[in-house]
Nucleic acid binder design. Structure first.
Length: 846
DNA sequence: GCCCAGTGG
DNA sequence: AACTCCACTGGGC
């Protein structure tokens, strides 16, 4: 704790190479001895030299930071302290202790699987991997300092008797599927982090479990017979104890002798439920798992490590328990704080979480807003209280390490092979990408990446290689006349644009609702399937609102927003932005009513031969918004009277200019007449999330210069928002473009079966798979919880102060940024009691 | 959009 | 003699 991995600085530096014993089963090792062996084994290698270099860079970073620290004035610190306290208070208000989050983690997973399948290994130190890298080790080996992410040859030095078993991922995947089946029994929306761990939300299960009869909580012991699991709870004995020094599996169970008919009855508490889950995992796979139970994900993750292996730890859902727990927690235990961050924090005298809160003012001046906000949450024991749903992958890559390769032809050939592999993988998932990135590592372990974004999406080996080859050639030329001396090459693709229905991957409502603009809208795809009529492609442009920006990973800020493409907005961003928009509009509706914002006329304008010819172009797949299209589509618009708005549900004009009223009408339509065919139902009786999305989008478009267009019996709305008039700089466009794509490009559908739906606002599970009903519920939640808060007039103005500058003198800037970030819960709180749910949303957005 | 660095499994 | 592969995030430019 005191000097974690930095103890071996007697060697000079290289703390980054020292043993990281921050892992279960590695307590009380002779670190100095182990580090000595590690260093001696590594010294002089190119790898070591490179690590030395990187260590130096980190040290320079720290020096720079200390210099900054030295320049901080008392006054600045004071001011920062005030800000920190304000922030802490507002975060405190967001504390939600009502959820029961569980993190499950298999014990030494790969190693355990191998030991199970080869019992001779059970008593021996073993690891899974190769001489160059280990994936994991058993607890026996950990005593020697052998651990995951350590090269095998070093491990062998530490433990000459170590047995290294090659990885067998197919086997691990199979076991993983087995345990996931069990996870799903407790939370169908569990979130896997890797093959062997997952987050589960037990809240609902616990609630239901209360009324379960004993029979539902009774489980049989299984035994092994002829290499097969049977459920006969008799005779034989099964002792899947993998770790000699770990408590006998489930100490509370009647031990394995398992008298005839051995059963175990589990209680109704959380602990019992989790114990039951672990019991089932063990019975099914003969492998043990550990679990952490806590009110949020951050804490649950830490807790699962607490009683590893084969144990569990409950952190009571009280503020006191949480705060006590957090105080002594080493910062390195926090997910996201690795060796570099730890070292930087250590340099500031911060090694555990109580230091974290003590030094928060200082940290707020030295770290980025995102960083110190995260620190702050950690120090308060806050974390995500609901589990985000699985999202679409963002990139796909393949890379290979090899002996020095310096021949150009070899390098090109390898590059081609990589592209081939990658194209194969992309095909499996039906992906098309626009960005190709080449990764190179030279023999000195220096890594370079070179990327190129194309105007259109690609997927074949030839296409990828064409881009990768150019990147590679450039690097070769840059190096010439010296040869490029490589030890690794990789190719990655990203900026995906397709959506394929071959893989009905289990996606959450959020995932479904996520609009990747470049994707074919599946509702439209379905529209094509369902009606042989001309297709419509509804295109959206990103809504850029301050708040919604936070969603895309909190960082990218403008990264994605600035680019004209890939908005990747979540359903929530949209809903949020919609409310924002409605709110603004509502307050301005008077002015607008007098025609100042004459609706920009847009019309189907349709599709002209030009369009049609464009569809033949592969680029068309991008569905990018082409100004000429926009323009073309404005030709035949009919302006609608300012006094009426057309309801996208019932298609009736609503005589109002008050957008709140209008919005209520829409809600009423959805709610009061769920059976009435609405737009989404027309498009697709299978009603998927994109339809919901469209429902949400349409009113937005109507809000501003609305213009209804009729085309072949289907309505759509097009509009343009003059950005200069939009105080949020929110832009929402819906374009109507005729599509004549080849069927093969259109048939994609992002799945259709709705999973059980959980409202991201109130987090209640909604007993419906009707997305209109669900949407209505979300609408209500948003209305109640968000709209009210959004009415506060201070929010929009924060936008203008959006310079990101983290120098200390610019504290002001940083503050306004942070103010913006926590604005949902900052002071002006006549709605104080509404703050809680808002912060939940806030979390969601991160 | 490009690139590097950090993190975790 | 020998230090992976993959995905993602954040920040600087």
């Amino acid at each position: 704790m005191e000097n974690g991995t930095t103890s071996s600085t007697e060697e000079g530096f290289l703390s980054r190479m020292a043993l990281n014993d921050n892992k279960a089963g590695m307590e009380g090792l002779d670190r100095d001895k182990i580090n000595k062996i590690i260093m001696e084994t590594s010294k002089g290698s190119r790898f070591y030299e490179n690590e030395l270099k990187r260590e130096l860079q980190v040290n320079q970073r720290i020096e720079k930071m200390m210099l900054q620290k030295a320049q901080i004035t008392e006054q600045q610190l004071k001011k920062a302290q005030a800000e920190v306290e304000r922030m802490a208070a507002s975060m405190e208000k967001s504390r939600d202790l009502s959820r029961v989050i569980v993190h499950v983690d298999m014990d030494a997973f790969y190693a355990a699987v191998e030991m199970r399948d080869c019992p001779e290994l059970k008593d021996k130190p073993m690891a899974v991997g190769s001489m160059s890298m280990l994936s994991t080790s058993n607890y026996h080996a950990r005593k020697f300092g052998v651990r995951a992410a350590m090269p095998g040859f070093i491990a062998k030095k530490l433990c000459p008797d170590l047995i290294i078993v090659p990885t067998n991922f197919d086997k691990y995947r199979a076991v993983s599927n087995e345990i996931r089946e069990i996870f799903a029994l407790y939370d169908p929306h569990f979130q896997p982090l890797s093959l062997d761990e997952a987050f589960l939300d037990f809240t609902d299960h616990i609630e239901q479990r209360k009324s379960w009869p004993e029979s539902l909580r009774t489980h049989h012991y299984h035994i092994i017979k002829d290499d097969e699991l049977t459920t006969v709870p008799e005779d034989k004995d099964l002792s899947p104890v993998l770790f000699e020094d770990s408590p006998v599996s489930s100490p509370s169970l009647p031990c394995s002798g398992a008298a005839a008919g051995a059963v175990e009855v589990f209680g109704t508490s959380v602990e019992e439920a989790v114990r039951e889950m672990r019991f089932r995992i063990e019975q099914k796979t003969m492998l043990t798992a550990s679990a952490g139970i806590a009110p949020n994900m951050m804490l649950a993750k830490v807790c699962s490590d607490k009683n590893k292996p084969n144990g569990q730890y409950v952190l009571p859902s009280t503020r006191e328990a949480v705060m006590d727990f957090i105080q002594t927690l080493p910062v390195r235990k926090i997910f996201g704080i690795g060796k570099v961050s730890e070292k930087m924090l250590n340099a500031l005298g911060v090694s555990n979480c109580s230091h974290l809160s003590q030094q928060m003012a200082l940290l707020s001046l030295l770290f980025s807003d995102t960083s110190w906000h995260h620190f702050m949450e950690v120090s308060l024991g806050l974390g995500h209280t609901f589990i985000p749903r699985h999202e679409e992958r963002k990139s796909m890559s393949t890379e290979r390490t090899f002996k020095e390769m310096n021949q150009t032809d070899q390098q090109l050939a390898l590059c081609k092979t990589l592209c081939q592999d990658l194209a194969g993988d992309m095909k499996k998932e039906g992906l098309q990408a626009k960005t190709v990135t080449l990764k190179l590592k030279n023999v000195n372990f220096e890594v370079k990446t070179r990327a190129q974004t194309l105007l259109y999406a690609i997927s074949t080996e030839e296409e990828i290689f064409a881009a990768a080859k150019e990147l590679l050639k450039t690097e070769i030329e840059n190096e010439s006349p010296q040869p490029l001396r490589l030890r690794l090459m990789g190719v990655r693709v990203s900026a995906f644009v397709t959506c394929d229905d071959k893989k009905p991957t289990q996606r959450s409502i959020i995932g479904f609702l996520q609009a990747s603009k470049n994707e074919c809208s599946s509702s439209n795809q379905r529209a094509h399937q369902n009606s042989e009529k001309q297709r419509f492609l509804i295109q959206t442009r990103p809504l850029v609102s301050q708040w919604s920006q936070r969603d895309d990973g909190s960082a990218g800020q403008s990264k994605q927003r600035q680019s004209e493409k890939e908005p990747q907005q979540s359903f929530f961003q949209r809903a949020h932005a919609l409310r924002l928009q409605l709110q603004t509009e509502s307050s301005k509706s008077q002015e607008e009513a007098n025609g100042e914002t004459a609706p920009t006329s847009v019309s189907s304008g349709v599709l002209t031969s030009k369009e049609e010819s464009e569809t033949a172009d592969p680029r068309k797949d991008d569905d990018f918004i082409n100004p000429t299209q926009v323009h073309a589509s404005t030709s035949g618009c009919e302006e609608q009277k300012a006094e009426t708005l057309t309801c996208p549900v019932c298609f009736q004009p609503v005589e109002t200019t008050d957008l709140n009223i209008f919005n209520r009408h829409i809600d009423a339509c959805l709610h009061g007449r769920p059976d009435k065919p609405n737009r989404s139902m027309i498009v697709d009786s299978d009603s998927d999330e994109d339809d919901v999305e469209n429902h949400l989008m349409v009113p937005i478009s109507n809000v501003r210069g609305k213009c209804e267009v009729e085309k072949e019996g289907e309505e759509s709305w097009l509009n343009r928002i003059p950005p200069q008039k939009d105080q949020f700089q929110s832009v929402q466009k819906v374009f109507l473009i005729s599509e004549e794509k080849k069927p093969s490009q259109q048939t994609g559908s992002c799945n259709s079966k709705s999973p059980a739906l959980i409202c991201p606002v109130c987090q209640c599970s909604q007993e419906t798979d009707d997305l209109n009903v669900f949407n209505h519920h979300v609408d209500l939640c948003l209305n109640q919880e968000v709209l009210l808060e959004l009415r506060r007039p201070t929010i929009p103005s924060a936008r203008n102060t959006n310079n990101s500058n983290r120098d200390i003198p610019q504290r002001q800037t940083s503050k306004s940024k942070s103010k913006r970030q926590d604005s949902p819960s900052s002071p002006p709180s006549k709605k104080a009691k509404n703050i809680q749910p808002l912060n939940t949303i806030d979390k969601f957005f991160r």
